[in-house]
Each structure stands twice: as C-alpha cells, then as structure tokens.
Amino acid sequence: MSDTLSARTVTITGADGDQVEAYLARPEGESDAASRGGVVVIHHMPGYDRATKEMVRRFAELGYDAICPNLYFREAPGAAPDDAAATARAQGGVPDERLLGDVAGAAAYLRALETSGGKVGVIGHCSGGRQSVLSACHLDLQGAVDCYGAFVTGTPPPERKMTNLVDQLPNLKAPLLGLFGNDDAYPSPEQVDELEQILADQGSPYEFHRYDDAGHAFFAVDRPSYRVEAANDGWEQIAAFFGTYLS
C-alpha cells in the first residue's frame, strides 16, 4: 500500500499511431525505485468518468502504476463523459481492433516507466469486462479481470455491432478473474456458466466469484446498483489476484 500518489493526464500512442488521452496514477515515496506491476483500467460504457479515475488511483494506492485510456477521445475530445459516451454509442461503440491497439499502447506506456517490473494486468467493468477478456486473448498481459462483462458469451443485439468472444477464448493468454452478480441479466448466470465451462474444458487458469443480491454494476458507488458486501469482497479478490500475477 502507498500512502502518497500522483495522478495526471498523459498522452499515449494508441491504435494506428493515434495520440490518445489517458489518466495515469502512480505510487510515490520509498517505493519509487522498486520494480512493480502495472494495471490498465478499461472504462465502462458510461465513459472516462470520475468513478473510473477513482479506480485508477485505487490501484496506485495498492502499489501499481495504473492507467486508463480514454476510448472515446477520438469521437468527442474534451467532451463531458456522458456526451462522449452518447456519441460513441451512436457510432456503434469502440471497434475491437481499435480497443486492442489502445490497450496495447497503454500497456507499453506502463512498461516504459522506470519503475516497471514488466508485468501488466488489465481490468474492466461492464463493456470493459468484455474488452478485458478480449485484450487477454490477443495481447501480452499477465492477468485479466472481468467485472460483469456482457457478451463474452451469449448473443449481442444487432445494434451493438459486436460479436461474442467464444471463438477467441481458445487464445486466452492470461489467467482470468471473473466477478459477477447472480441477479445480472448481461451477463446472466447462464452466460457465466457457459464461460466457465469453456475455460474449464480448454484448461485455462481462471477464478470466478459470484454474488447473491447483486446485479450489474455492483461496484458503482454512485448508483442504486451498488452492493457494499459484494464490492468489498470483489476488491479483495482483485488485490489478491494481481498480487499473485503482477508481483
């Protein structure tokens, strides 16, 4: 744990060489000289907002260099999160290939820091949960966390302009931690069951935790969906998971 940290907006090189805004938080103090892991935080569908930036700072408090790329920066530079998210949704969301390029750029930024030990994990909530799994199927990452990501399995509606990841899961390159609410519809418990069966059948390292009386967005402290017990336990699982794979 770090008692002090620094946080600022930076620019990373994302997909197609684009210069993308990102939010970086780092521990400060005696740990500055120590090699440490990095965490790429993928923001949820509502966008690059205050709640997501608080999560980035929380990872810095846990002792990691952490960064969140603004996935909607191209569509709405400088816009408020809600407006940027609405613009991105109207265009069908973030294309998977572009997402992979932005996450790869964020991971490269973390590995280039003088404090980096070379290991980088990824975490996402909501749409970011699916994108976290997608990233772990294609990029050099040492751990991935899926917080109730919809349409890793299951059938997305046509307007979402995406596919599920069933055909890509055999390429999963990193251990996966999944955190899900049993009252969620996207993903439903049945869709989580399907994902777990696929991972078990192919021998992928994974760990799932499911919470009763919790639906979608149970980590979101600013929403009625927030469930304190599930969120607190979820943070403990995340800390233990990254402590194992990024140390």
Rank of each mutant, 00 (worst) to 15 (best):
V56E: 08
A220M: 13
G215H: 03
S225G: 10
G121L: 02
V133D: 05
A79E: 12
D140N: 11
T244W: 10
P156D: 03
A214N: 08
G178R: 02
A25I: 04
D16T: 10
D222K: 05
P175W: 02
A174I: 10
F242R: 03
I42D: 00
A66M: 12
D201T: 08
D82Y: 11
R89I: 12
L195C: 12
K161Y: 01
Q142G: 04
G234I: 01
G47H: 01
L5K: 03
E30G: 15
G143C: 08
K53D: 14
S135D: 05
R130E: 02
D233H: 13
L62G: 00
Q142D: 14
D140S: 13
G129I: 00
R8I: 05
R57S: 10
G92V: 08
A136S: 06
A106F: 00
L24Q: 09
D167S: 12
F59A: 11
G101D: 08
D193G: 09
P205M: 05
P224V: 11
A217T: 12
P77R: 07
M1N: 14
Y48S: 11
S132C: 12
F241S: 00
P27S: 12
L246H: 04
G149L: 02
D32E: 15
D32T: 11
A185S: 14
G124H: 09
G14A: 00
H43Y: 03
K161P: 02
P175K: 07
E159M: 04
K119S: 10
A7G: 04
S135F: 09
L139Q: 09
G118V: 08
A34V: 07
S116G: 04
G243E: 14
A88F: 07
H125Y: 15
G14L: 08
A107T: 03
P187W: 11
A22L: 01
Y109A: 00
L172W: 06
R223G: 08
G47C: 07
V94M: 12
N164T: 11
S31G: 12
Y226T: 07
Y186I: 09
T9M: 07
